[in-house]
Design a protein around this nucleic acid. Sequence first.
RNA 1: GCGCCCUUAGCUCAGCCGGAUAGAGCAUCGGACUUCUAAUCCGACGGUCGGGGGUUCGAAUCCCUCAGGGCGCGCCA
Length: 573
Amino acid sequence: MTDPQILLAERVQQALGTAFGQEYATEDPLIRPSQFADYQANVALSLAKRLRRAPREVAQALADAIDRTDVTVEVSGPGFLNMTLSDAWIAAQSARQAGNERLGVPQGTPKTVVIDYSAPNAAKEMHVGHLRTTIVGDSLARVHEHVGDKVIRQNHLGDWGTPFGMLIEHLLDVGEAEALGRLAAGDGNAFYQEARHKFDNDRTFEERSRSRVPQLQGGDPATLRLWDEFIEYTKRYFNHVYDVLGVTLTDDDIAGESMYNAMLADVCDELERTGVAVISEGALCVFPPGFTGRDDQPLPLIIRKSDGGYGYATTDLAAIRYRVSDLKTDRILYVVGVTQSLHFQMVFAAARMAGWLHDGVSAEHVQIGSVLGSDGKMFKTRSGASVKLTELLDEAVSRAEAVISERYDDPALRKEIARKVGIGGVKYADLSVSHDSEYVFDFDRMLALTGNTGPYLQYATARARSIFRRAEIDPADVSGPILLGEPQERALALHLLGFGAAVEAVAETSEPHRLCNYLFDLAQAFTSFYETCPVLKAEDESVRLSRLSLSALTLKVLLQGLNLLGIEVPERM
RNA sequence: GCGCCCUUAGCUCAGCCGGAUAGAGCAUCGGACUUCUAAUCCGACGGUCGGGGGUUCGAAUCCCUCAGGGCGCGCCA
């Protein structure tokens, strides 16, 4: 790890020990980026009261005790310690980072992390919100893998339950061949709506559908065959979307609701036997303490309906039990819409009551905010119908093509660039705002070539690449001492050192937007460097080599960072 | 009624384990191409951090309260 904050924290802690006694050596030195120096330590202020000394005095004593090798320290204001790193230290760390194939990203103690994401429902509307959970979850999976965790992707497909009776009946009505063709083409939503319409308006269809459900759950072979086909063709469509998006999910990651069917009865038995669940109004319910509904009544988590059927709470509980006991996970991330917040709170609480979730395992709901249309409401087309995802992505690509420079008239090249820019722009838009906030879907903003966008980062990367293309040098071959003559060089090198910390923070907090912000700042620092510091035309050979190294390092970090976000980068733009 | 989330510059958003004059981007205005991609860069303008109270040496950040908005809340998943 090359992060300067670590060095500074160690230095200050050491000084705390020598200045005030060893009991203070573990105090958080409160290192923060500073506008007056590279970093500042704020610990003197927070410690002053406990030491019963004036803050500035504490700061001075601390400053005097700090090992000043490669660091200048000065007391400032009411008791801040402004710390500036020597150019030599930064340059040395840069060289170290350049020589490190992990670019300064540490590998922690490996954990097993289950990441539950995407989870499209084969029987319900699928909209851009599903894209977002898929994209964010996929980035988290990539990041955890990169820091050394064992990642188990779990695509909790909505492939079971009441609506499937309806869908199977509709499939029979339409005819298998035609129905399956439509499903593979991504017409599942319309297919569902047709079925739903008949279900609501046609009594005999409704009855047929209802009687189909027990056959499905009971394992009737003819019904299962139809269900299998339905799911198979729906999966083809999902896989097509994943392919277009460049998402790492495969069929091996599918762990849909149907998978837990066989465990549900046992889940209920165990909960009932242990007294965690009780019968209420004919349904088997868990009443986790602290949850109340309307009229202050305890809020139930229904795990077996009064008609004997199971709902998604049962499935989710079965999944937790399975993930902890069979998958041996240390951490479960549920990358699911914010609207499910209450549901997950209750499921987690119930799982803790049952002892399935114990202190060694953390279950976290990574709440994904809703994607809104320009009207500020849930994203829909102008006509009010839900948007077909593939059409949305196609539009992103064709819009990207329209803004791509006319400098590329080779149609194949243009198309390839447009594809990466269009898809990358959509993905970056999902990743760059904090996952729990809503955001307004806006093609113009996410495909803009300036600002905190995917295309801007891709462009910065393409410019870095062009240096090496022009020089006919492989960035991987560049090495050499780094010299920090210009302020832009220093700022770039210093920012590069923070890469590892940024990646680590994403793994810890499940917030990919931190990495986006880091990369955006990096791209800006690089562009600024690029504008003011000629690389190939540098007057001095050692400066040229240094700048080449710096460019190579930047390029590698940008590529690695974008890869962790799941964003492809065209060779040129 | 209860619970969760949100309210920061004209717009879109960061910052929220308390720390100095609250930051970006877009938009607007003004500069910079005989120079490695100007799809860029540099600068300016712009904010009582929803209101009020509290804790603190210090609050956008923590606590309380009020207002406004979103989502959810017993047999869909």
